[in-house]
Amino acid sequence: MTDYMVTGLVAKRAEIAGELERTQERLRVLAENLASIDATLRIVAPEVAVEAIRSKVFRPPADWSKRGEMTRVVLSILRTARAPMTTREIAERMVVERGLQATTATLNSMTRRVACALRTQRDKGVARSTEGEAGFWQLWEICR
C-alpha cells in the first residue's frame, strides 16, 4: 500500500467517526427532550396516551429542489432559448422538464421560485431583464 492512500483512509475514518459521535450526541439530546415532553404531558394531561402519538415525518413536495438546482435549470433554459423569455414561460418549461403536473398552483409556485432565482442572478450580473410589451412583464436573458 502507498502511504498517501493509508493517510487518506485514516483521515476519512477519523472524519466519519467524528460525524458519528456528533450524531449520537444529537440523538441523546433529542431523546432527553422527548422524555421531558412526555413527562410534562403525563402531568398536565394524564388522560393522553403519549405512546399513541405518531411521529411526524417530513415529506418534501414533488416540486422540491436541492440547493442550486433551480438556478442551474433556469439558466440552462435561458441559454438554450432563442429569444428572451418571461418568468412564466420559464416556469412552464421547468414543469415540463421535471415531469410535474401543470396545475395552476404548481405553475404559480414555480413562477415565484423562478422569479426569485432570476432576481438573484440579475444582482450577480449573470442575467438581465427588460420590459416586455406595454410594460406588463419582464423578459429575461443571459448576459453575454
Rank of each mutant, 00 (worst) to 15 (best):
2 T>E: 09
4 Y>P: 04
6 V>E: 13
6 V>R: 15
7 T>D: 14
7 T>M: 14
7 T>I: 11
7 T>V: 11
8 G>E: 15
8 G>H: 11
9 L>T: 09
9 L>E: 15
12 K>N: 13
13 R>E: 14
14 A>P: 08
14 A>T: 15
14 A>Y: 07
15 E>H: 13
15 E>S: 14
18 G>V: 06
18 G>F: 08
20 L>C: 09
23 T>A: 14
23 T>Q: 10
25 E>G: 05
26 R>P: 00
27 L>G: 02
27 L>T: 02
28 R>Q: 07
28 R>K: 10
28 R>C: 01
28 R>V: 01
29 V>G: 00
30 L>C: 05
30 L>A: 13
32 E>S: 12
32 E>Y: 00
34 L>D: 10
35 A>V: 03
35 A>Y: 01
37 I>V: 15
37 I>G: 01
39 A>Y: 00
41 L>N: 02
41 L>Y: 03
41 L>F: 04
42 R>S: 11
44 V>S: 09
48 V>E: 09
48 V>P: 09
49 A>W: 00
50 V>I: 13
50 V>A: 05
53 I>D: 01
54 R>P: 02
54 R>W: 01
54 R>D: 11
54 R>T: 14
55 S>M: 08
56 K>A: 09
56 K>Q: 13
57 V>E: 12
58 F>G: 00
58 F>T: 08
61 P>F: 04
61 P>V: 03
61 P>I: 05
61 P>C: 05
61 P>A: 07
61 P>W: 08
62 A>K: 14
62 A>G: 04
64 W>E: 03
64 W>I: 05
64 W>G: 00
65 S>T: 14
65 S>G: 01
66 K>P: 00
66 K>C: 04
66 K>Y: 09
67 R>H: 10
68 G>I: 06
68 G>S: 07
69 E>F: 03
71 T>Q: 11
73 V>G: 00
73 V>C: 05
74 V>W: 03
75 L>M: 10
75 L>G: 01
75 L>R: 12
77 I>N: 08
78 L>T: 08
82 R>P: 00
83 A>Q: 12
83 A>I: 08
84 P>N: 05
85 M>Y: 01
86 T>P: 04
87 T>Y: 02
89 E>C: 02
91 A>H: 08
92 E>N: 05
93 R>G: 07
94 M>Q: 09
94 M>C: 10
95 V>G: 09
98 R>C: 06
99 G>N: 06
100 L>M: 11
101 Q>T: 11
101 Q>L: 05
102 A>G: 06
103 T>K: 13
104 T>C: 01
105 A>N: 07
105 A>L: 07
106 T>M: 15
107 L>G: 02
108 N>E: 12
109 S>G: 07
111 T>H: 03
112 R>H: 10
112 R>L: 09
115 A>R: 14
118 L>V: 03
118 L>R: 02
119 R>L: 10
121 Q>F: 00
121 Q>W: 00
122 R>N: 07
122 R>D: 07
123 D>V: 02
125 G>F: 04
125 G>W: 03
126 V>M: 02
127 A>R: 04
130 T>L: 04
130 T>E: 13
131 E>M: 12
132 G>Q: 03
133 E>C: 00
135 G>R: 05
135 G>C: 04
135 G>H: 04
136 F>G: 01
136 F>H: 08
137 W>C: 10
138 Q>A: 12
138 Q>L: 12
138 Q>K: 13
139 L>W: 05
139 L>A: 03
140 W>K: 08
140 W>E: 01
141 E>S: 15
143 C>K: 15
144 R>V: 11
